[in-house]
Design a binder for these strands. Structure first.
Lengths: 140, 140
DNA sequence: TCTTCTATGTAGCCAAGGCTACATTCAGGG
DNA sequence: CCCTGAATGTAGCCTTGGCTACATAGAAGA
């Protein structure tokens, strides 16, 4: 298969990808909550249900886990807000997302597709690759 | 959050990403089986256990599901081989992987990191983005 | 031959991320 | 004052992808 080898390092890489997947949902949630707070001033179960297109039950349980991780907190009003840690992750996540989208656009990818692909890719890029993309954008 | 909006389309995108995740393992397996067949002439449970760094039980169960999808078949020797469909997916998957790695290398990412990032990214790129990457490589 | 090691398989557990069905609570309209 | 609809929550089920522990089966050596 064109020189690809099945090395021992493959195992480590696969473990890395599995680890990334378990963090994806949390990042997507804090990112969405940050956006909702900015746009609507509140982030409730129903709002998130709309964003992700899943049942409210799935949202509630995801939020429970994310709350346990210390990323979000309930407000008295019944909504959710970001903790300091959550805010930092949301910021970083949104920044990374923007960078990836702008990079894909610079490559010539259409706007809608760039959005869609960024959604999937953004959790799998190392700092090194992100820096390379940033450098590419600046060198244009 | 720098202009990102929480649109209705976000739901569709998230569903797409979840769908991609459920296909990732199957693609990784057929790709690995293809590579093993090429390198060692056989692909057994133990070989795959080494590749992915998981228990042999996880391998057996994954293979069972992938066999049900019609991507692999058992050989009399006790190993696994690819069906026509499986072979096609393995080929396409390996090709895509190579393209992504070469692209990251061209961006200036180090070899090890390019390999690692490609592993995570490759399942989340649309045809359009892959074409854009190929065009970039050719324009260099 | 007997024993031991390797490979494979089964049973059963866990966590995450989906779901439907069934409460409950609360606001607003009739 | 009641009823209805929206929002939230709980119970319980499914699948996927991990795991350990235990059971074979077959090869290979003492």
């Amino acid at each position: 298969m064109r020189g690809r080898t099945v090395s021992k390092k493959a195992a480590a890489r696969h473990n890395r990808v599995r680890k990334q997947h378990s963090d994806e949902l949390a990042e997507d949630y804090v990112e969405a909550i940050g956006a909702l707070l900015g746009e609507r001033g509140q982030a409730r179960v129903t709002d998130l249900q709309g964003v992700f297109g899943v049942s409210h039950v799935s949202v509630i349980r995801a939020l429970k886990r994310i709350e346990e991780r210390g990323l979000v907190e309930r407000t008295e009003a019944g909504g959710y807000e970001l903790t300091r840690t959550g805010k930092a992750i949301a910021e970083a996540s949104a920044e990374r997302h923007d960078l990836v989208v702008r990079f894909l656009l610079a490559l010539g990818v259409s706007s809608g597709q760039a959005e869609a692909d960024a959604e999937g890719m953004e959790h799998h890029l190392s700092e090194e690759s992100l820096r390379a993309m940033k450098a590419f954008l600046e060198s244009q």
